[in-house]
Structures are given as structure tokens and as C-alpha cells.
């Protein structure tokens, strides 16, 4: 039974996570957006979607830059 549960967990995790840091970063970006959206001011709450977009794009670029640097170090 535990091996079946383990297989289901591994499959689900593999479905959503390729790079742990990117996944954690995305969760943090979502949490920041949630906090901003519930901070009170309507104008901020209404524009929280753009904040999320900005955070995620910055995260993607930073993560890929890190991957590129790691690859360069590996072959250097």
C-alpha cells in the first residue's frame, strides 16, 4: 500500500515540479500576491494580478539564468 501511495506522490510531484527552486519561487510569488490582494486598498487588490505576472516573469528569467550559469560551470 505504501509503495502505491509513494508512486502516486512521485507521479503527482513529477507532474508539477521539475526544478524545486522554481516551484518554491512560484509558491512564494502566489503567497505575496494573495497578501497584496488582501491588504485592504481596492486599487492594490484590483491590480494584484499584474504583480503576480511581474513576479513570475522575473522568477523565470532568474531561474533560467541560474540554470545557464550552472551549465557553464559544469562544462568549464
Amino acid at each position: 500500500m505504501s509503495s502505491v501511495m509513494r508512486a502516486i506522490w512521485d507521479n503527482t510531484y513529477g507532474l508539477l515540479v521539475d526544478d524545486g527552486q522554481l516551484a518554491v519561487g512560484a509558491i512564494v510569488a502566489l503567497a505575496i500576491t494573495w497578501v497584496i490582494a488582501h491588504s485592504g486598498a481596492d486599487i492594490i487588490s484590483e491590480n494584484s494580478g499584474w504583480v503576480l505576472l511581474g513576479l513570475v516573469l522575473a522568477l523565470v528569467l532568474a531561474n533560467l539564468y541560474r540554470a545557464g550559469r550552472n551549465a557553464r560551470r559544469r562544462i568549464g
Binding site: 500576491t33 488582501h38 487588490s45 494580478g49 499584474w50 505576472l53
Partner: peptide, 11 residues
Amino acid sequence: VFWFGEGVGAE
């Protein structure tokens, strides 16, 4: 991004 934004009340 679009749906999470909608979920937290973004316009």
C-alpha cells in the same frame, strides 16, 4: 496567472 489573479479578486 490569470485564474489565480481572478481567485484573489484581481481585476
